[in-house]
Design a protein around this nucleic acid. Structure first.
Lengths: 158, 158
DNA sequence: ATGAGTGCAAATGCTTTGCATCCTG
DNA sequence: CAGGATGCAAAGCATTTGCACTCAT
């Protein structure tokens, strides 16, 4: 979905269209790396020096509540935000923290997904996370399978 | 898996068997609610007043590194720990934060899971999260589908 | 006896909050 | 022009770290 379409939907959702929100939406939409709120804040601050944490968090929460982006808890620490609202899953590298989208499988695999609801639990969404090592981290991994690099380094941005 | 079997494995993994670790393992194994490190600390402190944050975190990390428990990032904020190492998935209530295990589907559904690896990414584990509302939260939800209760209340313990 | 493990407290990192001010609709 | 949104700074949690001390092996 493009920026204008989302901004339109922001208004439709009853949210005011401020310059800050426009900037946040633009940045989020054109970034496929699932940035954290902090990362967005750092970047946006360059163009708009008065941009504040609170605004970034407020806006991301408002967008998520309106169903215009989603907040991902893929690893401990910071939440990541994703403007891609098409059904898809995530590839998370245990080595560098890289997060990448994968298209959800179609056909019989996809049909198999929704589980038998248990005890009146209403399932609204099924999230799948594939954890492992990206090509780069796999290369520097010892034969034992242990990580050669601690897990907490700055996530790679591609 | 029972407590003694795990303690045996802790030793096998080259970890020393301290009273603190025994207490942490016991507490974690008998608790199916996927407690956070803080929750474990609060409970354990009653029996062992000198128990510290650092020890709880160190031990949980060591257990996870040895493959004896897993650390779950199911929602923003605190990680949850799970001593159940059999393949299974999680039901997470968006209303109260409740986390419950669900047995992984077998047969054709299970076979469908591992995705086509992308670009040399080595998949080590597939995690599935079913998000929605537990029976209790569904009951107090407005017809619109919006939560009647804010999402950040104390997670229910069952 | 030796080094892994512990306890304490302070530090760090992410996120939320309170409140006065601003500006979109 | 009213109420939502913003900016700033401080507070709130979860987690990590440094270091001296202890104890399991």
């Amino acid at each position: 979905m493009n920026v204008d379409a989302i901004l339109q939907r922001v208004r439709t959702a009853g949210l005011k269209l401020t310059p800050q929100r426009v900037a946040i939406v633009q940045e989020l939409v054109q970034d496929p790396t699932h940035p954290t709120a902090q990362e967005l804040y750092e970047r946006l601050r360059r163009a708009q020096p008065t941009m504040s944490f609170a605004t970034v968090y407020n806006t991301l929460d408002a967008l998520a509540a309106a169903g215009l982006c989603s907040s991902l808890a893929l690893s401990p620490g910071a939440s990541r935000f994703d403007a891609n609202m098409a059904p898809h899953d995530h590839l998370v590298c245990d080595g560098c923290g890289l997060v990448r989208d994968v298209h959800r499988m179609v056909g019989k695999a996809a049909e198999a997904l929704p589980p038998p609801p248990t005890d009146g639990f209403q399932v609204r969404a099924v999230e799948q996370i594939y954890r492992g090592l990206c090509a780069d981290c796999a290369r520097i991994t010892e034969p034992t399978g242990r990580l050669a690099r601690p897990r907490s380094e700055t996530p790679a941005q591609r």
